[in-house]
Measured scan of single mutants.
Amino acid sequence: HSHMSHTQVIELERKFSHQKYLSAPERAHLAKNLKLTETQVKIWFQNRRYKTKRKQLSSEL
Rank of each mutant, 00 (worst) to 15 (best):
S2G: 13
H3Q: 10
H3L: 10
M4W: 04
M4P: 05
M4D: 01
S5E: 04
H6Y: 10
H6W: 12
T7V: 12
T7D: 11
T7S: 11
T7C: 13
T7Q: 12
T7I: 09
Q8S: 03
V9W: 14
I10G: 04
I10V: 07
E11D: 03
E11P: 02
L12V: 01
E13P: 01
E13S: 03
E13W: 06
E13L: 09
E13T: 04
R14Y: 05
R14L: 08
R14F: 11
K15P: 00
F16Q: 02
F16T: 02
F16P: 03
S17L: 10
H18I: 10
H18Y: 12
Q19D: 05
Q19I: 06
Q19L: 10
Q19C: 15
Q19K: 12
Y21P: 01
Y21M: 03
L22F: 02
L22K: 00
S23M: 02
S23K: 06
S23V: 01
A24D: 05
A24E: 08
P25Y: 11
P25I: 14
P25T: 14
P25R: 12
E26F: 02
R27D: 02
R27I: 15
R27K: 04
H29G: 06
H29A: 12
L30G: 00
L30R: 00
A31E: 02
A31L: 02
A31W: 01
K32C: 07
N33W: 14
N33E: 14
L34V: 03
L34K: 01
L34N: 00
L34P: 05
L34E: 00
K35M: 11
K35E: 07
L36T: 02
L36W: 03
L36A: 01
L36Q: 00
T37K: 02
T37Y: 02
T37H: 04
T37Q: 03
E38S: 05
E38T: 11
E38Y: 05
T39Y: 11
Q40K: 02
Q40M: 05
Q40A: 05
V41A: 01
V41T: 01
V41I: 11
K42C: 12
K42L: 10
I43W: 06
I43P: 00
I43R: 10
I43E: 10
W44K: 00
F45N: 00
F45P: 00
Q46E: 11
Q46M: 11
Q46R: 14
N47I: 13
R49C: 06
R49V: 03
R49E: 03
Y50N: 12
Y50C: 15
Y50A: 14
Y50D: 08
Y50H: 13
K51G: 10
K51N: 08
K51F: 09
K51D: 08
T52W: 15
T52I: 08
T52K: 09
T52Y: 14
K53H: 08
K53M: 11
K53W: 07
R54P: 10
R54A: 07
K55N: 13
K55E: 15
K55A: 13
K55H: 07
Q56M: 08
Q56L: 14
Q56C: 15
Q56Y: 10
L57S: 11
L57M: 11
S58G: 13
S58T: 11
S58D: 14
S59C: 15
L61C: 15
L61M: 15
